[in-house]
């Protein structure tokens, strides 16, 4: 019994020791993250509680997506009508109709039981470049270009350490677009001693490994912007990342503006309840 008693007395010290030991063992693992993907955070118009999409930026991003990304990547969850939705790129319904009409859609069967081709309508989804994943893989040596509808929410880079503890306070929720931007601009000279097999490319920001199957998709002046914005890789990357955030989270503006109203209501309501509570309890010592 005395032995157990002394164990209890040093229990406190042991608890502290266990924690220190735990952190000490964990420390070397943090260090390995230093060599991880390079992701520099960008400034986004849609960040923070009052964030809104920049319509001009989304329209530019759409153009980059359409002229560059969509030649290999599908975007199966987005329809042309969405381009005219509130909180989106701000195309008119007529513009959305015109854009939809540029594609051919296989439909049917008709009354005669035949499949037929028709012009696209606003309710049609964006056209996929390949009929199925296997066809896409066959064209890219086995690599599948992922669907881009949700990519800005389906990718994020761990920034290491305890940064996740600060995110709820700073409301950092743009890890996805930050990653897309950095990936598109991350094709740099491979460091000494790093080689990529065959058609693979070195990319300093890729989270899936050292080398990526996607060749550098953007070069300066590859897309001509209609609003005079300079056609640089950085501008393309930033604009298309913003566009992909919108396709991943099309109700972002509705969410943030609803949030503001709900917050204001709840804060006033809480204040009134607190005053009521004080009044009710004022005659009772507690």
């Amino acid at each position: 019994m005395t032995m157990i008693l002394s164990v209890t007395k040093i229990g406190r010290a042991m608890g502290a020791a266990a924690l220190v030991a735990g952190l000490a063992f964990a420390a070397p693992a943090f260090a390995s993250e230093a060599g991880g993907p390079v992701v520099e955070t960008q400034s986004w118009s849609f960040a923070g509680p009052f964030g809104r999409f920049d319509k001009a930026q989304l329209q530019r991003g759409y153009k980059v997506y359409k002229e560059v990304c969509s030649t290999c990547h599908s975007m199966n969850l987005v329809s042309f009508r969405n381009l005219a939705d509130a909180g989106g790129p701000g195309f008119t319904m007529d513009q959305a109709k015109a854009l939809a009409a540029t594609i051919k859609v296989k439909d049917g069967p008709n009354d005669a039981g035949e499949m037929f081709e028709r012009d696209g309508r606003p309710s049609d989804r964006f056209a996929a470049p390949f009929p199925n994943d296997e066809a896409a893989r066959a064209s890219f040596g086995g690599a599948l270009p992922p669907d881009l509808s949700l990519i800005a929410k389906a990718r994020a880079v761990h920034r290491g350490g305890a940064s996740f503890l600060g995110d709820p306070f700073t409301l950092y929720a743009e890890a996805g677009p930050d990653y897309v931007y950095n990936l598109l601009t991350g094709y740099v000279e491979a460091p000494h001693g790093v080689t990529c097999d065959g058609a693979l490319q070195y990319n300093q920001s890729f989270i899936g490994g050292t080398c990526i199957a996607m060749p550098p998709p953007l070069t300066d002046d590859i897309v001509t912007y209609d609003d005079g914005t300079k056609g640089t890789v950085q501008n393309y990357a930033r604009d298309v990342a913003a566009f992909l955030m919108w396709t991943a989270e099309p109700k972002l503006e509705a969410r943030k503006s609803t949030g503001l109203k709900v917050m204001m209501f709840l804060i006033v309501f809480a204040g009134l309840l607190y005053l009521t509570k004080r009044k009710v309890w004022s005659s009772v010592a507690h």
Partner: peptide
């Protein structure tokens, strides 16, 4: 509401959007 409206994916995992 703070999480719901301003950081709704903070507690989720990006991979679940694949």
């Amino acid at each position: 509401s703070w999480f719901l409206f301003y950081s709704p994916n903070y507690m989720g995992h990006p991979d679940n959007y694949i």
